[in-house]
Design a protein around this nucleic acid. Sequence first.
DNA 1: AAATATTTTTAGGTATATCTAAAAATAATG
DNA 2: CATTATTTTTAGATATACCTAAAAATATTT
Lengths: 217, 217
Amino acid sequence: MLSKSEENYIKEIYSLEQKFQSDVNTNLIAKKIETKASSVTDMLKKLAKKELLTYQKYKGVKLNPKGTKVALSIIRKHRLWETFLVKKLNFSWDEVHEVAEQLEHIQSDKLTNHLDAFLDFPTVDPHGEPIPNKHGNFKTTKTICLNQFQIGEKGVFVEVKNDSDTFLKFLNKNNLSIGTKIKVIEKEDFDNSMVIETNKDQFRISENVTKNLYLKR
Amino acid sequence: MLSKSEENYIKEIYSLEQKFQSDVNTNLIAKKIETKASSVTDMLKKLAKKELLTYQKYKGVKLNPKGTKVALSIIRKHRLWETFLVKKLNFSWDEVHEVAEQLEHIQSDKLTNHLDAFLDFPTVDPHGEPIPNKHGNFKTTKTICLNQFQIGEKGVFVEVKNDSDTFLKFLNKNNLSIGTKIKVIEKEDFDNSMVIETNKDQFRISENVTKNLYLKR
DNA sequence: AAATATTTTTAGGTATATCTAAAAATAATG
DNA sequence: CATTATTTTTAGATATACCTAAAAATATTT
Ligand SMILES: [Mn+2]
Ligand SMILES: [Mn+2]
Ligand SMILES: [Mn+2]
Ligand SMILES: [Mn+2]
């Protein structure tokens, strides 16, 4: 049985591994968890002892298969609950993340799997993020980050890799939601901002925004 | 913001107050929470300091209005989740209590109230226990404990005041569920056991069972 | 390759929620 | 009403998950 803290560390280490495709270092984890590096070191030792990851002093950590399985189970719960909140309880996509941060720690396989069935085994959550099935498998559709697009290219917005309510509310305000068709009109070399076109509008967005939007061509 | 521990203490103190209609003493709480009397004393001091209850050394405690409100909010969440699990996720009534013990600590008024609406504002949970509404009000239907019934009396089983899975599984095995009609055939003075009759059967149950079944005449 | 900067770990401390054992208060009994 | 039994509180420990500050290891510059 893992504590809520341990689960959160495992989850964040997993997402950092995915993001950087490499071993994860202490300071990165500290920033993500919003804690101090010394606290991270303590926890890494503990998780290594529990054989969820390999840890070498000064060299960072890497989840082993057992740790990866734990991470996927928490991510599965998080995204199932987000889906539940939107589909069944009429939450909007910018209201679900904080509550899912709590719900992801509820421990009951039966609950998770029945919830999955109740939702008709969804494959993506309200942010377009893939939901692992009960075996930890999920379909990896190759989505491309908007900042990789060239002028003139078009795509469909299918996933947002930032669950914060401020960011999602910003997207709402600009009528950007999953399924929106986007065309790149202009790219600014100086600050990597872009002018994009949707059904309704044409407007400029900063690199900070383009970095978090993922599309299909 | 209260910790999970603090919430559990408040909840159990409330239910003991209801059960014994009096101030609650340290040892009773210790038994309910499955902890030591010394731990209870520590917590009572803390809860008194937070002004959720009145505490006098050696005299026991009593929830004040603020504490009572907290208790009712947790009980509301517990019973709404139990209802959700049975009505929407196909859990049986003996499988819900442990999961609800976790879910009752999720903190989001929006979630609680939307769940309530999703379930069509249920007034009782799968065990016949009343569900407080968002203002903490619930209808108090006068149910009578089976052990108060006389020989020959009939009633309808409407509430069970024991959520443990072993007890509920015992009821399942004997076809006793909410709505079952029961007639008292025999009462044994020696051990307060009873022989009861249902549609299907006639059999003896111990005082331990009669104490936990509540009926309407 | 020194010197400097950055990252990471260690050492030691705090708050919460437990525990055991002993002391103090209250209740029950002869 | 004094003795005994029970309940409750206090004193002092432990484990978890944090923290700050200093030391050690590693990385970057000059
Ligand atoms: Mn999320
Ligand atoms: Mn999401
Ligand atoms: Mn229950
Ligand atoms: Mn119940």
